[in-house]
Amino acid sequence: MGTRVRLTRSGGFAGLSMVASVDLDELPESEASQVRAALSQVNFDGHSDPGHAAPVRGAADTYQYDLEVLGRGRRSLTVHEPIADPGLQTLLDVLLPRAEPE
């Protein structure tokens, strides 16, 4: 059974939602391993507190990222830029070029 990763970038000045939904089994192996490596570094627990889930106080038009990973169970997180987690940044770098407007 494969792992499905869904990334939604919303907000920003445009308020446009960009969605990338990939099944790791369908990705070229080099990219799949990149995503797996990045996922293993993402700290889902660290982003579960509201301090990360909400934008910096007073800030406006920053991007909101919603990440959902479906495989053995479901993991998800919501963060706002600036992204501090290097694992998450790698994941965004791989997935965002595949995102399409919703």
Binding site: G12, F13, A14, P55, V56, G58, A59, A60, D61, T62
Partner: peptide, 9 residues
Amino acid sequence: YANAFWDGQ
């Protein structure tokens, strides 16, 4: 970067 933002600071 296809965006502009106010950082609250």
